[in-house]
């Protein structure tokens, strides 16, 4: 009886994995055909090999340039979702709360506050993208460290982490608003782009910072899957099974914070993906982290890439580029409402 159930679970994992991988590839390929310029990609294979050999210059063929743009954009969108899918899974496990999302650690608003402050203080330095990305990243991590420090003072439990995150997040949220008011340049809406995210302007050189930490995160999480599984049932349970819960928390939170900070600084704040991907993954394969660690990033990647494709279609119709984070939230809110109602009903 048990074996039947268990192997059924394994089969579901394998099928889901294959399905998601095929879906990812299909979505990615179709994303190459979607964008504001209607172009004919009949020579796509030839063009693809050219692109990966030669990334610096402007190509003779305008279609090659557009293809290049779409590829870098698609990769950025996918791996943002990939990173957030894993970060969301880990934060939900660490806080034992299926409604948690990576931004409850307070890093989105602290990132915003730091960027606003530095634009206010050093406007001439902040026009360079690299500086902005760096400050956004450091700002996010600062918020994270303050949250963790505060939570340790409050006992270090998962509840303490959530409450500290809320406190820190609100504080920096207030600071950001104040700073935005002070910055006041009518046209300074970089902050808005940080708030709502875009995959369009991610540079090729920034992609490795999105990809490598995500993959490293998946590998490390898989290595500690037992600690994560045990952790779900409580600190006491985890400890008596041989896994000090503090270690599990530390490793997970480090991975979560780095991945989230990277996505915020390179792409911006993309809501909902960190919350929804683990949910959908659990719906597919249950709670065993062996399966969810592998699948949740894929779900996140698919969702985000799909949203980015929607952004391109809407922008084509509407005439102006809408931010990615807005679309993910719009798709997300009804889904979230559905989840909350379903959960409360039970």
């Amino acid at each position: 009886m048990a074996e039947k159930i268990y192997y059924k679970g394994v089969k579901r994992f394998v099928f889901s994995l294959i399905f998601l991988m095929i879906l990812s590839i299909t979505l990615f390929i179709s994303s190459l055909f979607i964008g504001s310029s209607s172009i004919n990609l009949y020579k796509i294979v030839h063009m693809l090999s050219n692109i990966f050999l030669n990334k610096n210059s402007l190509y003779n063929d305008p279609m090659m340039n557009i293809l290049d743009l779409r590829i870098s954009r698609g990769i950025a969108a996918y791996f943002t979702g990939f990173a957030l899918g894993l970060a969301g899974l880990l934060i939900q496990t660490v806080t034992r709360n299926p409604l948690a999302d990576p931004y409850i650690l307070g890093l989105s608003t602290s990132s915003l506050a730091f960027v606003s402050l530095s634009i206010l203080l050093f406007p001439d330095i902040m026009i360079f993208r690299w500086n902005l990305v760096l400050i956004a990243f450091l700002g996010a991590l600062t918020g994270f460290f303050i949250t963790i420090g505060l939570s340790k003072l409050a006992g270090g439990s998962s509840v303490a982490i959530v409450l500290s995150g809320i406190a820190v997040g609100s504080f920096f949220g207030g600071v950001s608003h104040l700073l935005l008011y002070l910055v006041q340049a009518r046209y300074n809406i970089y902050i808005m782009y940080l708030l709502t995210g875009t995959a369009q302007t991610v540079l090729w050189r920034e992609l490795p910072y999105l990809i490598y930490p995500s993959i490293a995160g998946v590998i490390i999480s898989l290595l500690i899957y037992k600690m994560l599984n045990a952790y779900l049932y409580g600190d006491i349970y985890s400890r008596q099974l041989g896994f000090p819960p503090g270690v599990t928390r530390t490793i997970s939170l480090v991975i979560t914070s780095i991945l989230t900070a990277v996505t915020i600084s390179i792409v911006g704040i993309i809501g909902f993906i960190g919350l929804a991907s683990p949910h959908i993954t659990r719906f597919l394969v249950g709670n065993d982290h062996r399966f969810t660690i592998v699948l949740s990033p894929l779900v996140g990647g698919v969702l985000t890439l799909f949203s980015d494709i929607s952004v391109r279609i809407i922008s084509y119709a509407y005439g102006a580029e809408l931010p990615l984070g807005v679309i993910t939230m719009m798709i997300g809110s009804p889904f979230l409402a559905f989840l909350i109602i379903k959960r409360l009903r039970e």
Partner: peptide, 16 residues
């Protein structure tokens, strides 16, 4: 007082 906040199943618990 096992934590049951996450939607885990009996089998998943036993597996640990």
């Amino acid at each position: 007082h096992l934590s049951r906040e996450m939607p885990t199943t009996v089998l998943e618990l036993l597996m640990t």
